[in-house]
Design a protein around this nucleic acid. Structure first.
Lengths: 149, 149
DNA sequence: GCTAAATATCTGCGTGACGCAGTAACTGTG
DNA sequence: CACAGTTACTGCGTCACGCAGATATTTAGC
């Protein structure tokens, strides 16, 4: 197993993921950024504010405001002014609206489950650990790229 | 190891990849789509035409033309009319221009290599196989999503 | 060989996501 | 009670995108 093979495959893998994300967005009639945001709202720990969403998505604060505007208009989230700090705006997902997205995920998830079913317990654990490490590494790489420029 | 854990981690993983791609694009002063396209040009088998690029990226033919315009203007590719079918336009990467991109990839790749170095031969093989299967599955899922609508 | 249909790419135009820079509302510190 | 710092929002210009139609070239029908 050559490192180059892995690297090449990684890039093909990345490309496939980008297209997959795009396809999900097209299917839901949303912008890829919006799907990305809804995703983050389900996997990251809350609570969320507009500013936190800007951080998570990498958008500027202005663009994050517009993003929340779109999600609110489409009924995916609601805005609540924070009582203790009235500058803040808490953004909360609407469970009923999220259902369609979750259903799509679990429908697509079936294909994934079938794939994972072929692996042993140990192999699943390895993949899981690898994903966690990759997420962590990505975070570092992103920070590194931002600093360098 | 619960399937749900894997699924949740997968989505965090996907989100991280999307942001990573964005960060690479920002760093190079390009749009994410352009980076995606350049990536595809290095991992997919050629030759490439404008239409093939439209397929690979999921863009319409018009948008693919504009994409190639941008890449050509930035010096990453050159256009050549196909001699046998003069409707076609062959799009060829310019190796010197690709060098910057490749250097960035291998610089970032060092972090990845360090990560992969912790794995045994067998574990690398598993990850490699998993990536290939995922790429294939993504392709199917994308086709499925397109048909369903 | 000539016309019609099909194919590959390009162009005009409207929509909308984004960054930037400035604004308004609110907090807390002296 | 000023004054700096923080949080979210608002014009405005730019540009990527899809759509629909235009142009050039190839292929099929007769």
């Amino acid at each position: 197993m050559l490192i180059d093979d892995l690297q090449q495959e990684s890039r093909r893998y990345l490309a496939a993921y980008v297209m997959f994300n795009q396809a999900v967005a097209d299917h839901l009639g949303l912008h890829p950024t919006d799907v990305q945001c809804l995703n983050l709202l389900t996997v990251e720990p809350g609570p969320f504010t507009t500013g936190r969403i800007a951080e998570l998505t990498g958008l500027t604060s202005g663009s994050a405001t517009r993003l929340v505007d779109r999600l609110e208009r489409a009924g995916y989230v609601v805005r609540h002014r924070d009582r203790t700090d009235r500058r803040r705006v808490r953004v909360e997902p609407v469970p009923e609206a999220m259902r369609g997205l979750m259903e799509l995920w679990s429908e697509l998830g079936e294909g994934w489950q079938a794939m994972f079913a072929d692996y042993t317990e140990d192999e699943c654990a390895l993949l899981h650990r690898h994903m966690r490490r990759t997420v962590e590494l990505s975070r570092q790489q992103i920070a590194h790229l931002r600093d360098k420029k």
